[in-house]
């Protein structure tokens, strides 16, 4: 029931398109047939063959490397080791950037340095291991590697600039409660 509520619009579009597809095939409606036989068929075969494999990998990754394990090791971590741990934690998480903010708050309360908070936010928005399969699958290894290699220095640069900016100002993360 919750599933139907959440996907109401999507299901409406899928049903409408199915009816349109059926109508097009039945009456030989040309634009409809072109959509079905052209783009739609290419995309759907690609997705249906690749998605299940990707989600098998994501599921396995989730049970073998739970992020709680890494989170436990991040306390007052500072310096390079702290940065690496914080980045590793960020890489293991999924979700949109605003999901990183509450975690950043927790890290801050645990004594994570300001620079590492910025590294965490940057790393979170660069690379997510569960998503990497997706990126490589749809855009290729060359694209993924180049993008990641180019974004890493950007993340470090942004963290550096922001840390410098806050050197003489007060920096605080608030919780939403």
């Amino acid at each position: 029931m919750r599933f139907i509520k959440k996907h109401g619009v999507n299901i409406g579009i899928i049903v409408a398109f199915s009816l349109f597809a059926g109508y097009s095939v039945y009456t030989d409606y040309l634009p409809g047939l072109e959509i079905l036989k052209g783009n739609f068929r290419t995309f759907i075969t690609e997705l249906i063959s690749m998605l299940p494999l990707m989600f098998i990998l994501i599921g396995l990754f989730d049970v073998w490397l739970p992020k709680e394990k890494v989170q436990k090791h991040i306390g007052a971590g500072s310096g390079i080791k702290g940065s690496l741990l914080v980045a590793l934690l960020a890489f293991m998480q999924a979700g949109p950037l605003y999901a990183a903010f509450p975690v950043a708050y927790t890290l801050w309360k645990k004594g994570c340095s300001r620079f590492n908070i910025f590294i965490y936010l940057g790393a979170f928005s660069t690379l997510k291991i569960p998503m990497l399969m997706f990126e490589i699958g749809f855009l290729g290894v060359k694209f993924s590697l180049l993008r990641i290699v180019l974004t890493m220095p950007a993340v470090i640069a942004i963290a550096f600039i922001m840390d410098r900016y806050y050197a003489k100002k007060s920096f605080e993360i608030k919780s939403l409660q």
Partner: peptide, 19 residues
């Protein structure tokens, strides 16, 4: 457990992807 988790995530995202 991993397969189950993966399958659940797949089903959750499928309607959006189809759309």
């Amino acid at each position: 457990l991993g397969l189950k988790k993966g399958a659940m995530m797949f089903l959750k995202i499928l309607p959006t992807i189809l759309t």
